[in-house]
Structure formats: C-alpha cells, structure tokens
Design a protein around this nucleic acid. Sequence first.
DNA 1: CGGCTCCCCTTGGAATGCAAGGGAAGGCAC
DNA 2: GTGCCTTCCCTTGCATTCCAAGGGGAGCCG
Lengths: 119, 119
Amino acid sequence: MHTTKLELLRGTLDVLILKALVWGPLHGYAITNFIRRQSDDALLVEEGTLYPALWRLENKKLLEAEWGLSENNRKAKFYQLTPEGRRRLRHEVKVWEAYATAVGKVLGVTQLPMPEEIG
Amino acid sequence: MHTTKLELLRGTLDVLILKALVWGPLHGYAITNFIRRQSDDALLVEEGTLYPALWRLENKKLLEAEWGLSENNRKAKFYQLTPEGRRRLRHEVKVWEAYATAVGKVLGVTQLPMPEEIG
DNA sequence: CGGCTCCCCTTGGAATGCAAGGGAAGGCAC
DNA sequence: GTGCCTTCCCTTGCATTCCAAGGGGAGCCG
C-alpha cells in the first residue's frame, strides 16, 4: 500500500505537533520527520506551515522553546510541551477521535481506539 | 455518550455534502439535517457555511440544482450529484480514510472500515 | 394577526495551510 | 580551499474556507 501525499486538513496540525513532543523535546526539523515517518510518509508538513504553527503554539504557552545543538551538531531550537500543552494534547486527541467518529458515521466508516496507549 | 458540538475541519465539508446526496436529491436544509442526524448531533453545518459550499460544488459541476417544492410545501432548491460528483464522492471518501488513518497512526488511534457498505 | 418553522442568501472577518522565497552552517568529496 | 548536499530557521503573500451575524419570504397553526 503506497502512499500519496495528503494535504493537511486545517485544524489538525496543532495536535500532530503536540503529539510529536509527548516523548520529549524536539527541534522543528525533527518534528516534521516524526510526523512524516509516523504516518508512513502520508503527511508532510511544509516548513512554511510548521514554523508559524510552532510560533502560535509557543505564543499560547502550550510549548516552550530553547536553543541548543542538534544530534548533527547544528544550532537548533528545541520545543517541549508545557503542562498546559500536555493537557491540551489530551483534549485535542479526544476532539480528533470524536470528529473522526462523527465523520465516519456520515460517510459509513468506523474507527476504534487502540486497545491501550503506552505512556 | 453525549455530544459536544464540533467545529468543522476545513476541507471535510464537501465530502459530507456529497455523501448526503448519494441516495437522491435533497434541498439545503435537508442536507444540514442529514449530516446532523447521521453524526448523532456532533456535526452542525451553519447556513453561512452550507450555501457557499453548495454553490462551489455546483460551480465545479459536481452538483446540479433545480427549484421545486419541499415535503412541507415550501419553495426549495434540490441538489443532486452529477456523474462527476459521484466519482468525486468515491474519491473523497478514500482520501478521508487515508487521512484519518494517517492521523490515527501519529496520534495512536486506529480506524477500521465497516465490514461492508450498503449500496 | 402573531409567531414558529422552514428555506434561501450575503457580507465581513478570522484562521491557517501552501508556495516560494532567503539564509547560515556543518560535513564530505574533490 | 571549493562546491555541493543536508540540516535547520524564518518571512511574505496568497488562497481557501469556515463562522457570525445579518436579512428575507412563505406556509401553517393558534
């Protein structure tokens, strides 16, 4: 099953970014890679989309950023969740599930939560 | 399980409208009701959202409209799928499934297609 | 008649994704 | 060194599309 690239639906990027950071701080480039790999190359976050979104999330106090050095010895800005960001992530995941369920009902598709989530 | 109203994610309305018309022509008001009922009140399409969307879809030749009389004896504009609209519906349903799957992979949620779709 | 429901529409503003640009700096091949 | 690829950050302008908030007409019922 190979993957055509999909346009992002407006309103879903934030939760993807927040999720990318649930395991620890990442820099922007790594966030993109996380989302791409985790979705089996279906979702590609453009840089012109990512950085404004990161700024928005930082501005809303859902993320905090600090400069550091990447694994490749480059200057990079590392983002991490604030406690508020972590709460928001949990909330937004539920909203996504509800939305996907609702659309699924209309379209005739169902989705089930995973048996158990780690972490 | 009670239902909070959800904001529409931009980009998902068209497929919902197309799906509403798969069984036959409906007027705008009935399309809203279909989506609301079918989603168990989770999705409410505002009129200021619906009518421009209908116009867009008609303009793209995915829908055709004609005036008639509603079941309540009111003047109403009935929309129906064109053959192209029907093709597009099938395509957009697949895109939605792919998108929901991809987001699900990132967020840690899976969704399964229904055992068999009627029609 | 008054009020409710049904049914259509428009305008303005807000949000957010994409395309297309620019730039700096590390590492490697030559 | 030079050149090139990759990694990493950012901005601007545009297009799309949703919502809020309005307006209006017409059938039906008390």
